[in-house]
């Protein structure tokens, strides 16, 4: 029973990582219908930002890197949106293939710039150690990631619901044409959304450096699971993403506990298929009268 309880914090922290990654996706996918396979490479960019800043900021690199990574990944996303993706609206499946091409190029660029082997980012010393809860230890770095996820969710929530720009964003998400008719500059909203969504990937990348090594293909490990979070949570739904990420993290860690790592993935996949039988559009659905 005790070891079963140990799975709880592990599941929570897997969920927090997934949530950080899926937050950005749920915007770009939910609002713009863009399936951004290069999201994983924005994560990588964030992670390498922390690595590069080590020379300058030393052990505090991870903390310093958060805003830098947000800006860098966000800018990369913005450039991608401006140069390519904006020609693809209404063709979601094509954006998937397009951004996959981008992701290939970025991965190879990272391999050429930083080398193929993994690199290590030293976590700040104040993240060493952990708190002991009921027999299990919860490391500070995992706690930090959870706190970061909570902060990001709160920030996004406030942005969406309390700012004029966020209101426009929700308007575009709910009905693009009507928003445009009402004078919302949808193209500008799209740019900003893509910037924020990609920036969040950068933040997630910094968080990942705290729990593992950084490599050119770091993004590919997480991207599929993150997309599943979006699918299960519902497009563009903040609460859906939160619940789905935590549920998937939990399911993952408990399935791994009861069976093994390789079967756990299959169980998670089967669970999502079963879940979609009941809620084919994900947990929360944006009600609309539009057909298809």
């Amino acid at each position: 029973m005790e070891s079963l309880l140990n799975q709880l914090p592990i599941g929570l922290s897997i969920g927090a990582v997934l949530l950080l990654i899926a937050l950005g996706l749920t915007f770009t996918f939910g609002q713009m219908g863009v399936i951004n396979m290069a999201h994983g490479e924005f994560i990588m960019a964030g992670a390498y930002t922390a690595y590069m800043l080590q020379d300058w900021a030393g052990a505090q690199a991870a903390a310093v890197a958060l805003p830098v990574a947000f800006a860098l990944a966000g800018t990369m996303g913005w450039v991608l949106e401006r140069t390519a993706i904006r020609h693809f609206y209404g063709r979601p499946l094509d954006t998937l293939l397009l951004t996959w091409g981008v992701s290939l190029v970025l991965q190879q660029a990272a391999r050429d710039l930083f080398g193929a082997p993994n690199v290590q980012v030293v976590a700040p010393s104040w993240l060493n150690g952990g708190v002991t809860i009921g027999g299990g230890t919860l490391p500070y770095n995992r706690l930090f990631i959870m706190a970061l996820a909570i902060a990001c969710v709160a920030g996004i929530w406030a942005y969406q619901n309390r700012s004029a720009q966020g209101r426009r964003m929700r308007a575009v998400m709910q009905n693009r044409e009507l928003a445009a008719c009402s004078g919302v500059a949808t193209a500008r909203v799209d740019q900003l959304t893509f910037f924020i969504g990609s920036g969040l990937a950068g933040v997630a990348g910094v968080a990942l450096t705290l729990i593992g090594p950084v490599g050119p293909s770091i993004g590919t490990y997480y991207i599929v699971d993150a997309f599943l979070v979006v699918v299960a949570g519902g497009l563009g739904q903040l609460r859906g993403a939160v619940i789905a990420a935590l549920a998937l993290g939990m399911l993952n860690s408990f399935a791994e506990f009861w069976t093994n790592a390789s079967l756990a993935k299959v169980i998670v996949f089967a669970a999502i298929i079963v879940f979609l039988q009941f809620r084919p559009q994900g947990m929360f659905v944006l009600r609309s009268r539009a057909l298809t």
Partner: peptide
């Protein structure tokens, strides 16, 4: 659409 694409990839 995209949902199916993602599911097949996850598979």
């Amino acid at each position: 659409g995209a949902y199916f694409a993602i599911l097949s990839q996850a598979l």
